[in-house]
């Protein structure tokens, strides 16, 4: 087993597991703490590949940028809920559902997951399917404006690409509307 270049992954797994142990056990005497830390060390040495995959660089900077990205995402969640509440409580229900497809140039696992969950939580769109090889997204949009926000503006793709320092969205291939 080679540990070179995987030090960050092992350390991150160990920290998360130690926090989780302390949170769930709630006992602070020496025996429980030491046995928990030993268990965390063994588990993180064996199976750190499950949580942090690959050996990309500049992980600290990415984590910092992710911390800046999260408040914007929370504000988008609040906007999404107000939007859904308006659509639900309006007597005529102003919805016009459609399925759209677009491709991004994001390839990393974590960035794709972040983009998919962000799309689900932002106003009017839910991710249906992700193809990791081509970076293709199938998205169900509840109206025309949310679909256009994803297809034309592409703010969210640019933000996620900025966070994970991958290349931004290609503009030449136009997205299709089903």
């Amino acid at each position: 087993m080679k540990f070179k270049g995987k030090r960050f992954g092992i350390l991150l797994t160990f920290c998360i597991m130690a926090v989780f142990w302390v949170l769930l056990s709630g006992i602070f005497d020496a025996f429980h703490l030491i046995s928990g830390l030993v268990c965390c060390a063994i588990v993180s040495l064996i199976s750190h590949d499950l949580l942090v995959k690959g050996e990309s660089e500049k992980k600290l900077l990415k984590s910092l940028r992710l911390l800046i990205y999260i408040p914007w995402e929370l504000w988008q969640i609040v906007l999404a809920n107000i939007d859904v509440a308006y659509r639900v409580l309006h007597p005529r229900m102003p919805i016009d559902p459609q399925i759209i497809e677009f491709e991004t140039t994001l390839r990393g696992d974590f960035s794709l997951v972040t983009l998919a969950n962000s799309i689900t939580l932002t106003p009017g769109t839910i991710t249906i399917e992700v193809e990791p090889d081509r970076g293709k997204f199938v998205v169900h949009a509840i109206g025309k404006e949310p679909a256009d926000a994803l297809l034309v503006d592409q703010t969210m793709q640019k933000k996620v690409a900025h966070v994970f320092m991958e290349t931004a969205v290609r503009t030449e291939d136009l997205p299709t509307r089903k």
Binding site: N81, V84, A85, V88, I95, T120, L121, G124, I126
Partner: peptide, 10 residues
């Protein structure tokens, strides 16, 4: 699909 829009966010 539209029902999941309501529940997934709210």
């Amino acid at each position: 699909y539209t029902r999941l829009h309501a529940t997934g966010k709210c």
